[in-house]
Design a protein around this nucleic acid. Structure first.
Length: 552
RNA sequence: GCGUCCGUGGCUCAGCUGGAUAGAGCAACGGCCUUCUAAGCCGUGGGUCGCGCGUUCGAGUCGCGCCGGACGCACCA
């Protein structure tokens, strides 16, 4: 916030002048001046730990340093600075400051939560990227929720972001899809067939076969097997991809780019292999081509072209990531399931081998989801088809609850997702708690309108002096910082938590401060505050892809 | 065996890149609806932050070593 910057500048100025006067030793490695909201209200509006951090460099007692800094700061917005504990400087602001700041937020409310554009090159983020061979399951759901929320948060923080889905539409799994749908197709036509060994057993494959049958009848029955497989592959692929897109869209997940693996075959893969070969990173052994990835931290070297001449999945992935780097993004983010973590070293090694800076490829690992119904564990298995799909999850608990539950935990914590809890429309369910705050505010506005109370152009915020009001205002001020931190840490759970805390602060305010029926100017000021609150709740929920209903 | 992540009240988890007396929700207990949605509010109890060393003025947070759990270690994707 503004005030924070002013305080930090004041501290920096004081330090500078003390150095100039020879009171502090000159040094070029001073710690950054950071301000935080203290854990207790008694500690003031902002706290700064600079004096303690600089104690070693200045070779002085932290409290003495804090004294010196304090003596060199005076500002119209400052009430007082207290020195506490080992050397905290606690800043107490004049009450007028928060009213001015609130006014600034109110006057430009539409933009509150949207940080100024950063001038970096775009960031690219790739997530979900599930094979188009079946339905998305709950694990994909967590990835989808996390990825889309991170995209929203990065954009709110001012970054330019391109989101991308990598479609694994080449290779064995597509053949398996074709064989599986073929078997179901023939079955539906009364043929007795043996189901392929590692085919996809899910019921959705039967659905796809039924759709094809309904659309085209038995006209593929008489074709030679190879020809029929070819056609069925295309039809099944189109159907599966359409299902993916539909489910994701319903789950509030949209991609800027759908990138087909097929477009890498064979030219881009050959080019990638050639580039590696030219750099001397490839060797031949046992008839296969190997990438010497151990040179760059991998556990073992990896085959990129098999003995039979077919590129491995890694080869395609190398070509894909090479392509991403060449598209000129400042940062590449991949969200992978934690079960793929063993793959990181080889991809990064390959990028290093190609001469790219692998540090610009950030791979976020998403820990596993365990589904529960109450206390009972629901097992997932894509192969047998006994999984809870994302679609079923959306139908059972709703998009809002599902997304919030996925996002309320840190991505590197395993998630126990309790379907019973997510379904509960009660206080046990945090998503409703937040939405309820928003709905309450909307209700106030409906009734304010009835009695002719309108949003003031120039609210007299200084009429609001109770703790409940001040606490709410201060909570709102924290929001831009939360967005910044959530973006820096790729941490949607910070926003989930913030939204919850803000809602809690509002509910307390609601109890203590009436709007309708109090003195007119106070009522108008409170109405304006509540408007800002509703905007912030809605904005935060929006970053999570959760709706903010006007009534519940 | 090696690697990644996790271990914080009975349960599920936060903990702002090392700061002040470790916080929420659920569960338990006690209060609050003739005025803007009680899907709410207020209060009470409950913790050797897995264990042990170390770094530091200061460690739940950083390092090392154990213990426990999840996941992975393919010429599969």
């Amino acid at each position: 916030m503004n005030v924070k910057i002013q305080i930090a500048d004041a501290v920096a100025g004081a330090v500078q002048s003390a150095v100039a006067d020879g009171v502090f030793k000159a040094a070029d490695n001073l710690p950054e001046i950071t301000l935080e909201v203290p854990p207790k209200k008694e500690f003031g509006d902002f706290a700064c730990n600079f004096a303690m951090q600089a104690a070693k460099i200045f070779r002085a007692n932290p409290r003495k340093i804090a004294e010196e800094i304090r003596s060199r700061i005076s500002a119209p917005w400052l009430d007082k600075i207290e020195i506490a504990g080992a050397g905290f400087m606690n800043f107490y602001l004049k009450p007028s400051v928060i009213y001015d700041e609130l006014r600034a937020v109110y006057d430009n409310l539409d933009n509150f939560g949207q940080l100024p554009a950063k001038n970096n090159q775009p960031i690219q983020i790739e997530y979900v990227s599930a094979n188009p061979t079946g339905l998305l399951h709950v694990g994909h759901g967590r990835g989808a929720a996390a990825g889309s929320a991170i995209v929203n948060i990065l954009r709110a923080a001012g970054f330019s972001v391109v989101s991308e889905y990598y479609i694994n539409d080449a290779g064995n799994q597509m053949e398996n899809l074709a064989k599986s749908v073929n078997a179901r197709y023939l079955e539906l036509l009364g043929q007795s067939v043996e189901f392929p060994e590692d085919g996809y057993h899910g019921a959705d494959i039967i659905d796809t076969a039924k759709k094809i049958l309904a659309q085209d009848g038995d006209k593929y029955l008489s074709l030679p097997e190879a020809e029929r497989l070819k056609i069925l592959e295309d039809l099944a692929y189109a159907d599966k991809l359409a299902e993916l897109k539909k489910d994701l869209a319903e789950f509030q997940v949209n991609f800027d780019v759908w990138y087909s693996e097929r477009t890498l075959h064979p030219d881009k893969i050959n080019a990638a292999i050639k580039a590696l070969r030219d750099r001397g990173e490839i060797y031949e052994k046992d008839g296969a081509l190997w990438l010497a990835s151990t040179r760059y931290g991998d556990d073992k070297d990896r085959v990129v072209i098999r003995e039979n001449g077919v590129p491995t999945y890694l080869a395609a992935d190398i070509a894909y990531h090479k392509d991403k780097f060449e598209r000129g993004f400042s940062t590449l983010i991949n969200i992978w399931g934690a079960d793929h973590h063993g793959y990181i070293a080889r991809v990064k090694a390959a990028m290093t081998a190609l001469g790219f800076n692998a540090d610009n490829l950030k791979i976020l690992l998403l820990q596993m989801v365990s589904l529960y119904r109450g206390a009972e564990l629901v097992r997932m298995s894509k192969r047998t088809g006994e999984s809870i799909t994302l679609r079923e999850l959306m139908e059972e608990v709703g998009v809002d609850a599902a997304r919030y539950f996925f996002l309320m935990r840190s991505i590197d914590s395993q998630l126990d997702f309790d379907l019973e809890l997510a379904k509960k429309k009660s206080s046990e369910n945090p998503v409703y708690y937040i939405q309820y705050a928003h709905a309450r505010i909307c209700s106030i506005f409906r009734q304010a309108e009835e009695v002719g109370l309108k949003l003031p152009a120039a609210p007299e915020f200084s009429l609001m002096t109770t703790p409940a009001e001040i606490d709410l205002v201060n909570k709102i001020f924290e929001y831009p910082d939360e967005v910044e931190k959530a973006a820096a840490e790729f941490a949607p759970q910070r926003i989930a938590r913030y939204a919850y805390d803000l809602a809690a602060q509002f509910h307390s305010f609601y109890r203590d401060c009436r709007i309708l029926g109090v003195e007119e100017n106070l009522a108008a000021a409170r109405l304006a505050l509540v408007k800002v609150t509703a905007h912030t709740i809605k904005h935060a929920l929006g970053l999570l892809g959760v709706s903010a209903p006007a009534s519940m």
